[in-house]
Structures are given as C-alpha cells and as structure tokens.
Design a protein around this nucleic acid. Structure first.
Lengths: 228, 228
DNA sequence: ACCTGAACACCGTTCAAGT
DNA sequence: ACCTGAACACCGTTCAAGT
C-alpha cells in the first residue's frame, strides 16, 4: 500500500488547477458565462465547492486562467512561418475565430487590461510590426490601434453570440431583423444606418473583420512612407 | 382636495424612469458597477426595491438606459459645426472622455451590440464618412473599423480605471509598475513588450487614442484614392 | 396606478472540521 | 496537504398586500 502510494504518478481524479480550468472552459462553452458557478463547477468535478479555492484564488483568477488557456493556444498555433503582414492577419483572424467558438473569451479580454492573454496578442502584433519595418516611434501607436480594434470586434462578436444563440434563430434572419428595424429609422436623422441596413443581411463578419485589419495596415503603410 | 390633485403637475419626489436612471448613474459614477444594486438604488430613492420594477424591466434595461443617457449627451454635444474629418475625431474623443468620467460606460458599450447608444455612435461615424466622400462600398467596413477601435479602446480604458482607482496610486506610478514587470520579461520571447515598456510611463492615453483614429483615417484615405 | 417589503432562489466566499 | 459541506452575507427578481 505504501509503495502503491509512492508510484502513483498522479491520480487521474485528483484536483488540480489545470483540471479545474479545463472544466471551467467546458462549462463556459456549453452554458455561457452565466453557467459558470462554483457550485456547477464542483458538481462537474465531483467535489465540494470550497475545494476549488485551494487551487484558485477566486472567480476572476479562474476566468483569467481560462481565457489565457484559449488565447495561448491561438497565439502558439499561428507560428512564424509567414511574413509579418500575413502573420498579423492570421493572428487577428485566429483570435476572431477562437471567439466564435468561445464567445466568453471576447468579453473577458476586455476585462483584464494587463493580463497575460492580452499581452500575448499585443506582443504578436507589435513584434510583427517591428519586422514590417515600422518606425520605432510609430510602433506603440500602431500596435495598440490593431489591438484595440481586435478587442472591440471580439467583444462585439461575443455579445452578438450571446444575443443570437438564445433566440435560436440562424444568423441571416437575425441580421435581417436588425436591418428591418434600421430601415424604419428616420432617414433624416439616420441616413447612414438606413443605407447600411441594405448591406447588413448578406455581409460576412469574418470578411468585414479582415477588411478592418487591412484598413489599419494601410494606415500604417502611409506613416511608413512618410517617415522613410 | 380634488382640484389640488388636478393641478399637481408632477410631484418632485414621484418615482419615474428618468429619476431612477439618474440615480443609477450617480451610483455607478461614485461606487462603480459593483455598487449598483437594486437595494442601494432603492435606498437612494427612499423607496422599496420592488418599486423600481414598475418603471424598469430589469437590471440590463437599467444599465442600457444609463449608458444611453451618457452617450446621447456626448453625441448631441459634438454638433455639426466642423468638417467631417474633424467631426470624427471630436466624436471619438467625446466618447473617450465620457468614459474617463463614467468608466462603466466603456464596459457597457461592448455588452449591448445593437443598443441605441452604439447605434448613435455608429451613425455619427458613418454619416461623416459619407460626407468625407468615402465610396459607398467602403463605408460599412470603414465605419465598423472606427467603431470597433473606439469600443476596444473604451473597454480597455474602463478596465484600467477599475484597476488603477482601487489601488489609489496615481497614473504614472501605476504605468511605471506595469512597465517594470514588462522589462523583466524574456527579451527573446517578448522583444516588443520590452522595448515598449520604456515608452509606457510617459505616454498619454488620449494622444495615443487619437493617433489610432488618425491611423484608421489614413487607411480610409488610401482606399479613397484607390477608388477615385 | 403605483408602491411596499418580505420571500425565493440563487450567488461567491469562508472556514471549522475532517482525512 | 488537500478536501468537505454547512454557513454567511450578499444578489436580482417576484408578488401578495397595501394605498
């Protein structure tokens, strides 16, 4: 019995921060942010609610760790095979797609301003801007422009997912409904929304997201030409 | 007595959605998002917690109305006196400054994707892009690039305010602490963060925010030239 | 029509007690 | 060292009862 205890590398059912975070991600994906409860988490792990506090300080740390897990995977997967410009697009799109699968990540990214997940994305964007030859004085501004754009789109997408899914309607009818409401708006006060409402039902979120990245990169190029 | 009841325009202390929303804004500004409770709100209004539900459906509607109140004031104040490019900068900066005063607005804007507050900003940005002569095919992409950037920066700023204020430290020591942590990072894995850490303590959030707007507008100009 | 306030069904977090 | 589960101090929301 004593030897058995010695050679037990690690009991599969032992609690650990990793197991807790994985279970949390599972709940978040399946039930959304409202579903993640210490009681639900304890039930899934077949333990008491208080046990989780031995491995995790509180709910904020748990959410940060879960976000970190997802983002680390994305940033690592992107790799360094391609050129800096394509790398920025791939990285941004990777974050965008991850949020499609894990909408709660989009919300969480905006909540922890200097968290590890955010820094990884920031480093990924900024490092590639350096490779691109952006002047040193412009690097911080350009990288945070890209980061803020990605974060804004991410949060927006996450909120959309929260809104569209409960209804159960498919994407185009959902957008169609919004467009219909916009079309009814006062043309004098909302000329832009009215016009855009026609394009909304057929637009593709992913394409639009990438167009925004390219727009910012075009702005970066302008500054680059002005400096050099 | 009957005539008295007739000529009572409106008792000053009567509950109304407007009074409730104003009180909510007051609590949110003073105590933050965590401080806004139906019980705290009822206490401030000298009424029962349940009374609020006669005027407001639930907490989400309350938060949306509060956000709407702040944003409407900003969008209205900006006016139409200046050219479209300057108008975009003024509008964006107006939202940015409003979030400095009401950090909770930054969080909330990302939570209600098709809410009135967001649409007002979107219309303000998009309408001015139309005036700027942006090709119709590029208007939706350009406007949402600007919107997502503003939202990302807004949420980030709000999260920073949540983080910095409880500590009570002033801004430069706060940023200095973050920069110090970045400087310790592995130079090989985080070349960008390390370099940027030197610029962080002296950088100005407002200036950087505006630089991002200008960067996107430069990208918009590029597309404009290509089309025209 | 509008307001009251107790009650319900939850939370995150703590902590004495166990192993 | 790690886990249990009851208990504490809250929440948002409802609803019978009042005026």
């Amino acid at each position: 019995m004593a030897t058995r205890a010695q050679r037990t590398e690690r009991r599969t059912d032992a609690l650990s921060k990793e197991r807790i975070v994985d279970a949390a991600i599972g709940i978040l994906d399946a039930e959304g942010e409202k579903g993640l409860t210490f009681r639900a988490l304890a039930a899934r792990l077949a333990t008491g609610a208080g046990a989780i506090y031995w491995h995790v300080a509180n709910k904020d740390e748990l959410l940060a760790a879960a976000t970190d897990g997802v983002v680390t995977r994305v940033v690592t997967d992107v790799g360094r095979g391609e050129g800096p410009r394509e790398g920025i697009r791939t990285l941004a799109l990777g974050v965008f797609d991850a949020i499609d699968v894990h909408p709660w990540v989009g919300t969480q990214l905006s909540r922890e301003p200097w968290g590890s997940a955010l820094l990884q994305i920031f480093e990924g964007l900024g490092g590639r801007l350096q490779e691109l030859g952006v002047a040193r004085a412009d690097q911080l501004n350009s990288a945070s422009a890209l980061l803020n754009y990605v974060l804004g789109a991410a949060a927006q997408n996450a909120a959309n997912a929260r809104l569209a899914l409960p209804v159960g309607a498919d994407r185009s009818t959902f957008l169609g409904g919004i467009a219909a409401r916009w079309t009814e708006l006062d043309a004098a006060r909302h000329p832009f929304l009215r016009q855009v409402s026609a394009e909304l039902p057929e637009h593709d979120d992913r394409t639009q997201f990438l167009a925004g990245i390219d727009l910012i990169l075009a702005g970066v190029d302008t500054a680059r030409r002005a400096h050099g």
